[in-house]
C-alpha cells in the first residue's frame, strides 16, 4: 500500500462526494461529446481501493464496491431498522420507471439512453393517479419532480445538457435488481 500514489485532488473530490451520500459511478456524462465517459474518480478508487477502504473504515464507514459504482455506508448502524434513504431511492426509482413505462407508455430505452431521457417539464404535466401520490408521500419524497431531483442529487440519475435525466450505473443496477426480483 503506497499512499504516494493517491491523487490528492481526486481524493478530496471523492471524499466530498461520498460523505454527501452520493454514488461514484463508473460513467459520467460529458456535455462536450453528449455521451457517457469513464469517471476519473471511479478509476482513482478502483486503482487504489485498499487505501480508500482503509480511509473510510477509520472514520466509521465502509466503502462499498458494487462493480459499477462505489458508495459509503455507516458501519455503526449495522442493525438499523430505519432505512430512510434506501426506501426513498428504491421507491423513487419504482415510481419513476413505472410512470415512464406505464403512464407515458414509453420504452425503457427512453430513461436509459442519453439520446432520449426524461424531462422535469413533462413529468410535471403527468396527472399522477392516487396510488403514485400515496407512495411518494409515504416514502417522504413529496412530488415526482422532487423524487427525480433527489435521485439526481445522489447520482442515481444523470442530467444531460438537454435538461433530461437518464439512469446512472447505480440507477441501472437498481432497475436490474428490481426486475430480477420480480421476474425471478
Amino acid at each position: 500500500m503506497n499512499i504516494e500514489q493517491i491523487n490528492i485532488k481526486k481524493s478530496i473530490q471523492i471524499y466530498d462526494e461520498l460523505t454527501k451520500g452520493r454514488i461514484i459511478n463508473r460513467h459520467i456524462y460529458s456535455s462536450s461529446t453528449h455521451s457517457l465517459i469513464d469517471n476519473p474518480l471511479f478509476q482513482e478508487l478502483r486503482e487504489n481501493l485498499d487505501i480508500y477502504t482503509n480511509q473510510y473504515q477509520m472514520s466509521g464507514h465502509e466503502l462499498i464496491d458494487d462493480g459499477e459504482y462505489f458508495y459509503l455506508i455507516y458501519k455503526k448502524l449495522e442493525s438499523s431498522t430505519n432505512q430512510l434513504i434506501k426506501t426513498k431511492v428504491y421507491s423513487a426509482i419504482i415510481v419513476l420507471v413505472r410512470c415512464v413505462t406505464h403512464l407515458q407508455a414509453r420504452l425503457y430505452e427512453s430513461i436509459k439512453n442519453v439520446n432520449y431521457g426524461i424531462e422535469i417539464k413533462e413529468i410535471n404535466e403527468i396527472e399522477l393517479p392516487e396510488e403514485y401520490l400515496l407512495i411518494l408521500e409515504k416514502a417522504k419524497l413529496g412530488t415526482l419532480d422532487k423524487a427525480v431531483e433527489y435521485l439526481a442529487d445522489r447520482s442515481f440519475l444523470i442530467k444531460t445538457n438537454r435538461d433530461k435525466y437518464v439512469l446512472s450505473n447505480a440507477g441501472l443496477s437498481i432497475v436490474d435488481e428490481i426486475v430480477e426480483r420480480q421476474n425471478g
Binding site: Y71, I73, E78, T81, Q83, V89, Y90, K138
Partner: peptide, 28 residues
C-alpha cells in the same frame, strides 16, 4: 412510513445503511 416498513426494506438488498448527507440534519 415506508422507511420503517421491514417488508419493503427486506425486499431489496442494496444500499442498506447508505450514508446520508451530513449537511442535512434530522435524518439518520
Amino acid at each position: 412510513d415506508l422507511h420503517n416498513n421491514q417488508d419493503f426494506i427486506e425486499s431489496y438488498k442494496r444500499f442498506d445503511n447508505i450514508k446520508a448527507d451530513n449537511e442535512k440534519h434530522g435524518n439518520v
